[in-house]
Design a protein around this nucleic acid. Structure first.
Lengths: 345, 345
DNA sequence: CTGAAAGCGCTTACAG
DNA sequence: CTGAAAGCGCTTACAG
């Protein structure tokens, strides 16, 4: 297949051509130990002319490390995960480990299959962007000596698993307080179509916050609500669309709140009230945890919550007495896994 | 690090525990050759109780294959790439190869570094979602015996490189014809901030199509244009925002056209006229090419263009005499690499 | 049908 | 400072 019909040069080839031993070539490559200058030069020259690149597979086998980490995502179409990945990338500059980005779709079977594959491949660490409710795979990874940290999807009961997440309780309290001040007394929480841990968590936080204000919280049912609190911006933006197509006015009839403050929330035509959390920082922190855990050959066990900020925009406003509230005629849209499979309107 | 303090079971452990040779264990795992039922059962039992998982690193070294392919992306925040990845995933069910998704940001230095890493790791194949203009790394990959196909970013001059892309010439003709019919005679093409091959290609196609209608095409400058043809939806949506913030009316003063027909284009509040191309199909076709190339130990050399369809929505309308056209007061926004780093308005 | 042996391409003590 | 040897965990002919 190679144009020249030969297979890639190995360390053996280089050693032979340079007239040294394989150990010496290895030492030159790794910059370790002191190699005599003339030998080093000879080896370097041969490496350059043969275009030799050490085989990472062999190295991985020998060094018990692959230089690869995995980022497990729920929904590649959500810019939130893109930011998360960017944060990981930022933190990764040092050892430049390669990232496997895998979309589990929060499907338990897919998660398990992925977990198996990741263990077989002996990835150095795993960052979980979201997972199905009560998913067991992080513990299986830990059982196999792989450090894992949850990023943006709660805190595991397994002490061997690290976490960095938004402070959902605080965030939901901000949302509820904002809606309460605007006069809303019945609100609806709209989660994703699948069962994912992050949504469970936010749902619960919404419940607590609502209770603190005496607000009635409907979950995934609209009955009488004048505001829609959505699990994330993607869901919020989709519901905004669905509401307006069904004839409701936002924010006059019903308020809509998102979560993540993705770039689009700030778009003039969308102007979505949302919770800003620094997804890039989330990724960076998770990655840092993982990298130090790998370096110290231990699990990642730190847990950290990031404060959020409410960004008020055009989709929330005061309730207007006499306006219709949501009712039987309309149901919140539970965005499909990747928002990409929706049929275009 | 492992909770039980032991390292993962190896084939040697299994062989010992089952009282057979390593070859037999290997045969059982791979289902190959006929192993006596009783031995098979014993081995299976030991595998189950030791939780043995073959080490993919060793296997890769031995089998000269890694079961990993890479998808190189320009901008993870663009849902277009998410769809592309979904298509690859769809086609991958058979051998369930793991995907390395890497964001080159279309930066030549990053591309080269990534290329190096991919060669070292001996990935089985590479799908390129976009690349910098005249990037040489696909040929370097090919030099190293790695099949590569460009998906959605043109056709390489290197015959060893496969391609599947939108038919930009046809698509641009659709756009130009549509705008011409609406009365537009001067239009502006807005590309991404970086130099990427896909944009070069579209820019050229716009030039040809515009010439066919006697339309004046301004590139990245607004002067006198009444319509903005954007390289992709992300750029279009950002420009829509920028235009309206600057006081222009869309579509009354200026028309905006996107490319990709991402889910958001269909949103009621955005309603972006765009070119629909099946990104999932693009990914699926590219992946199929790669997989057959890998299986047949050759380069992927097919080239294929997919027809596109123009979806007319609310951002394009007839020119209105007397309305202001774009001028010195405003410049198109060239969206940053990942659209995620924009400061929120 | 089963196992001993060689080898994939590296790195790492260990002699010299 | 340099090289011979062992070994990482697999698979694949090849004997028996």
């Amino acid at each position: 297949m190679r144009s020249d019909g030969k297979s890639p040069a190995t360390i053996k080839d280089v050693a032979r051509l340079a007239g040294v031993s394989r150990s010496t070539v290895s030492n030159v490559i790794r910059g370790s130990s002191t190699v005599a200058d003339d030998l080093r030069e000879r080896v370097m020259a041969v490496i350059a002319e043969t275009n030799y690149r050490p085989d990472a597979r062999a190295r991985a086998l020998r060094e018990r490390t692959t230089g690869m980490i995995a980022l497990i995502t729920a929904d590649t179409g959500n810019p939130f995960y893109a930011s998360l990945g960017l944060g990981v990338e930022e933190a990764a500059t040092l050892g430049e480990p390669l990232m496997i980005v895998a979309n589990s779709h929060c499907d338990p079977a897919a998660e398990l299959a992925l977990c198996d594959s990741l263990i077989s491949r002996r990835v150095d660490g795993v960052i979980v962007g979201d997972l199905s409710s009560n998913a067991g795979f992080p513990s299986i990874l830990a059982d196999n000596g792989i450090p894992v940290v949850l990023a943006g999807c709660g805190v595991s009961t397994d002490p061997r698993i690290g976490a960095v997440d938004t402070d959902d309780e605080q965030a939901m309290q901000l949302i509820i307080d904002h809606l309460f001040a605007l006069g809303h007394r019945t609100v609806c929480f709209a989660g994703p179509v699948d069962q994912r841990a992050a949504a469970d968590r936010r749902r619960l936080a919404a419940r607590t916050a609502a209770a603190s204000r005496g607000i009635v919280l409907q979950e995934d049912r609209p009955d009488g609500a004048t505001a829609l609190i959505c699990h994330n911006d993607l869901i919020a933006i989709d519901n905004l669309d669905a509401l307006e197509r069904a004839g409701w006015l936002v924010p006059d009839d019903v308020a809509v709140v998102g979560f993540d403050d993705t770039p689009l929330a700030a778009h003039r035509r969308i102007s979505l009230t949302s919770v800003r959390c620094d997804a890039v920082a989330l990724g960076r922190i998770a990655a840092t945890q993982i990298f130090t855990a790998i370096a110290e050959r231990r699990h990642a066990t730190e847990r950290q919550l990031l404060e959020c900020e409410l960004v008020v925009r055009g989709t929330t406003g005061p309730t207007r007495p006499g306006r219709p509230s949501l009712g039987a005629g309309w149901n919140p849209v539970h965005v499909l896994d990747t928002a990409l499979e929706r049929t275009p309107h």
